Simulated scan of single mutants.
Amino acid sequence: MVDGESGSPRIGQLVRINRGREADQYAIIIDVLDETFVLLADGDKRKFDRPKRKNIHHVDLLDYISPEVERSMLETGRVTNGKLRFAISKFVNEELTDWKKGDSLYGER
């Protein structure tokens, strides 16, 4: 599922962290606190129960929303760490391969 319409963060959206100790790592938005901050988790170093509060200016919003994570968060308000890890690995294995072939990852078309 791709969200190319809006530049605002959404639950289930993948991001690439570009500032701080976790720079160049991927995470998933599990909550949008306000127009400036989001909560991120990756299911590995950052578990769902201890998400990272991050300024959206310090992450790259990727043009990919995990349907599994989005559905789970909307239905139960939670997501398993395994589902977060699965969504990130699925993205890295499938979407990044396509991106390397010339597609734009950040919605700039």
Rank of each mutant, 00 (worst) to 15 (best):
G20Y: 11
G4H: 03
A27C: 09
G12H: 03
I11W: 01
D3C: 05
K52S: 13
G107S: 06
Y106T: 05
Y106H: 07
V38P: 13
D24F: 10
S89A: 09
R21T: 14
P9H: 13
F91T: 02
Q25A: 06
E94R: 10
I11H: 01
R53A: 11
G77V: 13
S72I: 00
R46M: 12
L14S: 00
E108F: 00
L33K: 12
E5V: 11
E35T: 13
R46N: 10
I30P: 04
P51A: 13
A27P: 05
P51H: 12
D24R: 14
W99Y: 12
Y64S: 04
N81L: 05
V92I: 12
E75V: 14
G107H: 01
E35V: 12
P51T: 10
N18M: 11
E108A: 03
R10S: 14
G12P: 01
E70G: 01
R46W: 12
P9F: 10
T80A: 10
M1S: 10
K90M: 06
A23L: 10
M73P: 05
S6D: 11
K47Y: 02
R19H: 10
D60H: 14
W99M: 08
V32H: 09
F37A: 01
R16S: 09
W99I: 14
K47S: 13
M73E: 07
D103T: 07
S72R: 07
T36N: 12
L40Y: 08
T97L: 08
I17C: 05
K100I: 05
D98E: 14
I88G: 03
S6Q: 09
S66W: 00
F48P: 09
G20A: 14
I11Q: 10
N55Q: 11
K101R: 15
L96K: 09
E68C: 12
E75C: 13
S66H: 04
G4N: 08
M1R: 06
T76P: 04
R85N: 11
G77M: 08
A87R: 02
V59W: 01
I56L: 14
F91C: 02
E5Y: 00
D60Q: 12
T36R: 15
V59Q: 08
S8Y: 00
Y106R: 09
I65F: 01
Y26Q: 03
G43N: 07
K83V: 08
